[in-house]
Simulated assay, not measured.
Amino acid sequence: MGDTLNVGVIGAGKISTAYATTFARLPGVAMTRVADLDAGRAAALAGQFEGVRSGTPEELLAADDVDLVLNLTVPQAHAAVALAAIASGKHVYGEKPLAAGTTDARGVLDAAARAGLVVGCAPDTVLGTGLQTARASVEAGDIGTPLAATAFMITPGHERWHPSPEFYYQPGGGPLLDMGPYYLSALVHLLGPVRRVTGVTATPRATREVGSGPNAGTVFPVEVATHVTGVLEHTGGAVTTLMMSFDIWAGQLPRIEVYGESGSLSVPDPNNFTGPVRLFTAATQDWADVPDRAGYRDAARGYGVADLARSLRDGTSPRASGELAFHVLDVMERLLEAAATGTSLDVASTCVVPAPVPLSAVPEPGA
């Protein structure tokens, strides 16, 4: 790899344009190729950007002008595409989750380690000013020792807006595996890894209906839990109450709040890069906004890839790492298992909490 990390995108679906648009304004990262099982869709994305070629996944994997494969396929294909990229000698950055299960995810990380390649994984929203400012506040002791947290994600379901929502309701999907990575990655940054979980799940509806696009009105089966409630014990002793649901129309619940011995912190939506961070302390007895003090300014999807490029130049670990993504997947898998068995379970994996992001415009060496 030279000064620029050349990226080949496999999977030209809805999220791919967001990544491609970000790459166009980021130094150190360039999109060179796009591939998709639908050749027309790949060509349409490539055609929006000068010098980008489209083709088949096999052509992309064999290309010399691709250093990293950005894996934007559906969750069930994440592991297979990642392994093919690694076998082709290319680094991998994937959409979340890392794989549909921890067995496949471990296979990806082990293959990369043997090949001397790096694996990164979304979400990279945790690298923006919202979550990083909240983390800086916790680490500065603004709320004292963290004792507990709450994390809520509620929606009536993605079939209302997504034209092909079936994969959200198949193995590898559901509210926990779909949205949980945003919340759990944020919680690891704020409170450290998770060592024990318990949970309860429900599937109130056996079918769903596509609400938009050419397949509107199509009814399809639900194969996963669509409401998940869990309790997470972090290695530092804090306890998080988590609720992820595709079954709730509306609520006035916080996205994430962290409660300490001397105050509380309101954390912005972890699906976004920015947002207000609010602090309440025993001394002030009032809520106040916390100014930005850490994170990549004006970040967007793709900053995790740029941070990985920075890490390759620095010889450090990427912040949106495969190791963190594996731990998050392990937590989610154990939580669902605990719910199915009516027990609490230890989480065997752990991870290093990623380095904090200094307040900066873009990922660059030394940052």
Rank of each mutant, 00 (worst) to 15 (best):
M1C: 11
M1H: 14
G2W: 00
G2E: 11
T4V: 15
I15V: 12
S16K: 02
T17Y: 03
T17I: 10
Y19W: 05
A20I: 04
P27C: 07
P27H: 08
V29H: 01
M31Q: 11
R33F: 12
L37R: 15
A39G: 14
G40Q: 08
G47M: 02
G47R: 08
F49Q: 07
R53P: 01
R53W: 00
R53C: 01
G55A: 12
P57D: 01
E59Q: 15
E59I: 08
L61A: 02
A63P: 06
D65S: 06
D65Y: 07
D67K: 10
D67E: 00
V69N: 04
V74C: 01
Q76G: 10
Q76K: 13
V81G: 01
V81C: 07
L83D: 02
A84I: 06
S88I: 08
G89H: 04
G89P: 08
H91D: 13
H91I: 10
E95T: 13
E95K: 07
K96Q: 12
P97M: 13
G101P: 00
G101N: 15
D110C: 06
D110E: 15
A111P: 07
V119C: 09
V119R: 03
G120K: 06
T125F: 03
G130D: 07
L131N: 14
R135I: 06
R135V: 08
R135M: 09
R135Y: 05
V138Y: 06
G141I: 08
L147N: 00
T150E: 14
A151N: 08
I154S: 11
H158A: 05
E159Y: 06
P165H: 04
F167D: 13
Q170P: 07
Q170K: 14
G172H: 00
G174S: 08
P175N: 03
D178E: 14
Y182S: 13
Y182W: 12
A186V: 09
V188T: 12
L191A: 14
V194H: 10
R196N: 05
A202F: 04
R208A: 14
V210M: 02
V210P: 02
S212E: 11
P214H: 09
T218E: 13
V219R: 15
V224I: 06
A225L: 05
V228F: 00
V228L: 01
T229W: 00
H234P: 11
T235G: 05
G236W: 11
G236E: 15
G237V: 13
G237K: 09
V239S: 01
L242F: 09
Q252C: 13
Q252N: 15
L253A: 14
P254V: 09
R255P: 00
G260D: 04
S266K: 05
P276Y: 07
D286V: 04
V290F: 06
R301L: 15
R301K: 03
Y303C: 01
G304L: 12
V305C: 06
L308W: 10
L312S: 11
D314M: 10
D314W: 10
D314C: 08
G315E: 11
P318F: 09
R319I: 00
R319Q: 00
G322I: 09
G322R: 12
R334H: 15
L335V: 05
L335E: 03
L335R: 02
T341D: 09
S344M: 08
A348W: 02
V353D: 13
P354Y: 11
V357R: 12
P358S: 02
L359P: 14
S360Y: 03
G366D: 03
